[in-house]
Design a protein around this nucleic acid. Structure first.
Length: 262
DNA sequence: AAACATGGCAACCGCTATCAG
DNA sequence: TCTGATAGCGGTTGCCATGTT
């Protein structure tokens, strides 16, 4: 399939060189060329890299493909509860600073985190008919979702430590071209969540911003999860293993609990 | 079975920051 | 200081798989 690219607003006709540039999905051959070239010559100078590798792509496109997909340490799909919690926590602090958030999640790209936020979190905000950045939704995340994720993490860590270790040993590399996403083996975490919280990248601490009063990692490191505003969780559906799970919180449940809390 | 709707995400765009010459 | 190239960022688009009617 030769993708012709998206509609361009430019009124000027493309140059001959631009006409030759490819857009759209990468082919296996292009991926291979890029990987081989980067392996041999290293990253950087993406425009000249694209030419040197014989790719009819912009340097930008090559860089993006490498960083988001081909990089050996990139991890894709199946955002774990630990990662979900970290994303929520970091978004509270940093807002839509996706690249900054991504630095705290090894192997995850800013693009993936951004997509996660937009497709999962914003969807739930929409279902609740509130703005994703509103205090109301933040309160729901803080008092309901996040404690629930903590609970889930604790359950998982206590019951399947051995399994996790086995999985970590077999952590897969990014596939060359996962046309069928469902066929991918589930990626696994190879790090400790709590270690991540307490050991952010040296260049930037997660404590750099304290925009949200009373919310931090501290409460997650206590012996018990915080009380979710007195809510009874027993009657609520369980977290789907694959992520948030559409059944995690029904709109009605959350709305009802919000009203009870007020 | 077909048509339609929706969700997920790869890849693009425009913009800004940084750096070298 | 200026300028062009490059890198990086956040927002948006549109393809494709899956679910629903």
């Amino acid at each position: 399939m030769e993708f012709q690219g998206r509609a361009c607003g430019s009124a000027t006709p493309p140059s001959e060189e631009e006409m030759e540039l490819r857009r759209g999905p990468w082919t296996a051959d292009e991926d291979l060329r890029l990987m081989n070239y980067v392996t041999a010559h290293g990253e950087g100078r993406w425009n000249s890299l694209a030419r040197g590798a014989g790719l009819r792509r912009t340097g930008k496109s090559c860089r993006l493909r490498w960083l988001n997909y081909l990089r050996p340490d990139v991890r894709r799909g199946n955002i774990t509860p630990e990662e979900q919690l970290l994303i929520l926590e970091l978004h509270f602090r940093l807002g839509n600073r996706w690249s900054k958030i991504a630095r705290h999640l090894p192997g995850r790209t800013d693009n993936e985190i951004k997509n996660y936020w937009r497709t999962r979190v914003q969807k739930h905000a929409k279902q609740l008919r509130c703005d994703v950045n509103s205090k109301q939704f933040r309160d729901i995340l803080r008092s309901i979702w996040m404690p629930r994720l903590v609970e889930r993490i604790r359950e998982a860590s206590s019951s399947s430590a051995a399994t996790a270790m086995r999985q970590n040993a077999a952590a897969p590399l990014a596939p060359t071209r996962p046309v069928h996403r469902a066929a991918e083996p589930p990626p696994t975490l190879d790090y400790s969540f709590e270690a991540q919280l307490s050991s952010p990248p040296a260049s930037e601490s997660v404590t750099e911003s304290r925009g949200i009063q009373g919310f931090g990692v501290d409460w997650m490191q206590g012996a018990q999860p915080p009380s979710p505003g007195g809510y009874a969780f027993s009657g609520l559906p369980d977290v789907d293993q694959s992520g948030w799970g559409e059944s995690l919180w029904s709109v009605e449940d959350i709305w009802l609990q919000q009203q009870q809390q007020l």
